[in-house]
């Protein structure tokens, strides 16, 4: 097939993705915004329900909704602790793999990466069993600490997320480390820098873009927490139906109150975009110096 004009080829390349992107990304976003501006009105108590324009009424309800904002606070607290721990561990393991201090790199890389093959739901079910006092192999631990209690369950979930994603993040940072040219290290050696100093002053700054990328993905993932808390509801009564923002969206839509649920979705998506965008801008400014 020889297309004379590149325009036809260009359409062939772009249209399939473009149409699906429009249908399953742009259209739903637009539709959610539209839905969030409507409300259901009934004439009388038992009259037929009709959808009428409600302006920002749903958003007002979102902003007055205490449980929703405490769930936002909860995932932010989760993120402030879990993301640095997870990425710190990922960075440490990537640096150790790269340092040449350990033998069997192939084995370790695979071992750390295996949990990423476990879907979030399945990981949550598995750890739920491991936390349960009557099933856990770590009975001495589970008998002294109740991992599923109201005080502790958030951090039990943080452990599940950490367990799944450390290896994935480590691999991204590790592949950035592999891309550093050898000459850089030789220069450092001549200057008398030891392995720790090389790691801290040369490797970490050079893989900063990879760390920033993984941080943004982790922020997005944290605000979207759903599978883990939804699964943990069967193990722990401390996890309510509005425990995370996404659980609130889900439980509001199953009432069903689609207009309010759409408003929650829009606010959550905007907050997520704003937070990851701010983070990107802030780190870019820091990098300019």
């Amino acid at each position: 097939m020889r297309s004379k004009s590149p325009v036809r080829a260009l359409l062939f390349f772009i249209l399939p993705f473009g149409l699906l992107f429009a249908a399953f990304y742009l259209l739903p976003i637009g539709y959610a915004i539209k839905q969030s501006l409507y409300k259901v009105q009934r004439t009388g108590t038992f009259g037929p329900a009709t959808e009428v324009f409600g302006g920002f009424e749903q958003y007002q309800r979102v902003f007055e909704n205490g449980p929703f904002w405490s769930s936002v606070g909860r995932v932010l607290l989760f993120g402030v602790v879990q993301v640095p721990v997870m990425l710190g561990l990922a960075l440490l393991l990537a640096l150790l793999l790269d340092s040449g201090l350990v033998k069997g790199r192939g084995f370790f890389r695979l071992a750390f990466f295996v949990p990423y093959a476990v879907p979030g739901v399945v990981a949550a079910i598995m750890w739920g069993f491991l936390y349960s006092p009557n099933l856990s192999p770590f009975t001495s631990l589970t008998s002294s600490v109740d991992f599923l209690s109201a005080d502790f369950v958030l951090w039990s979930m943080a452990n599940v997320v950490t367990w799944v994603y450390v290896g994935y993040n480590m691999l991204i940072i590790y592949s950035a480390l592999l891309a550093i040219p050898q000459e850089v290290y030789e220069a450092a050696k001549i200057d008398g820098a030891g392995p720790w100093r090389t790691a801290w002053s040369i490797k970490v700054p050079l893989v900063m873009p990879a760390i920033i990328l993984t941080t943004v993905f982790s922020i997005i993932g944290t605000l979207q927490l759903l599978a883990e808390p939804q699964v943990f509801r069967t193990f722990s009564s401390a996890v309510s139906s509005t425990y995370t923002p996404n659980l609130t969206v889900y439980s509001t839509s199953s009432i069903p109150n689609f207009n309010l649920a759409a408003a929650f979705s829009v606010v959550l998506a905007l907050a997520t975009c704003a937070l990851s965008f701010t983070f990107l801008k802030a780190t870019q400014r820091g990098g300019d110096k």
């Binding site: 739903p28 959610a32 975009c273």
Partner: peptide, 20 residues
């Protein structure tokens, strides 16, 4: 536009997709 799509959480799309 596509890059903006990367930042849009997939879960925010699930509900409007259901309605559509």
């Amino acid at each position: 536009l596509v890059l903006g799509g990367v930042l849009v959480p997939a879960t925010a799309l699930a509900l409007p997709l259901f309605l559509i």
